[in-house]
């Protein structure tokens, strides 16, 4: 094992948490996420953007695993990389991208939009530089093996009681039903 990895492991142990992964993994995954995020917004071809977005989603999934969130990581792969990106790729194939990939890629107001985004970035930088001390350094290692069970307990309730989020969960299913109906009606030729 190389010395950098080793010292990362040791400091992780000293900080009182189980070494689930070394800092190197974090930097690789974070760099992958940001670089492919950059590709998403710069590629000319929408299919390339979609593929870059899948790479971003998978990198973020790795970060979830580093944060002791295996269930959220699985949901990310199933729902995002599996479901939503499939939907995106289908729509890209349905609409005609030949024309739009040849002409201008940025809208008329792009300088204004870029300026607004830069203002947001400056806000983030100021907040993070000034408020770094507000985020405690502690990282609590959550139990990984019972993660799914605990989340299920909060969503569905356990031992005959309603969970904390059962009502919100039912509302979410209603939202999905409405979204399905909306999507079907929207894409019908004649209502």
């Amino acid at each position: 094992m190389n010395p950098a990895l080793n010292s990362g492991l040791n400091s992780a142990v000293n900080a009182g948490m189980a070494p689930v992964a070394t800092p190197c993994f974090f930097y690789v995954l974070a760099g992958l996420a940001v670089v492919s995020g950059l590709l998403v917004i710069t590629r000319r071809n929408a299919v390339h953007s979609a593929l870059a977005l899948i790479v971003t989603l998978l990198a973020v999934t790795g970060l979830y695993l580093m944060l002791y969130a295996p269930f959220v990581a699985a949901v990310q792969i199933f729902v995002y990389a599996g479901g939503i990106m499939l939907l995106f790729l289908f729509v890209i194939m349905l609409v005609n991208i030949e024309r739009s990939s040849k002409d201008r890629q940025f809208n008329r107001m792009w300088p204004v939009g870029l300026a607004a985004a830069c203002a947001l970035l400056a806000l983030f930088v100021t907040a993070f530089v000034k408020g770094k001390a507000l985020f405690p350094d502690r990282m609590i290692s959550l139990p990984e093996s019972s993660n799914t069970q605990q989340i299920a307990g909060m969503l569905y309730g356990e031992a005959g009681r309603m969970g904390e989020y059962t009502f919100a969960f039912e509302i979410a299913s209603l939202l999905l039903l409405v979204a399905i109906l909306g999507a079907v009606i929207m894409t019908k030729k004649k209502i």
Partner: peptide, 23 residues
């Protein structure tokens, strides 16, 4: 924060609606 800003740039500057939704 980096991903968020990238997404905001995509929403505000891109012309293709599919890429706006991806952002």
């Amino acid at each position: 924060a980096a991903l968020f800003v990238l997404g905001v740039i995509g929403v505000l500057t891109r012309r293709n609606v599919v890429i706006v939704l991806m952002s």
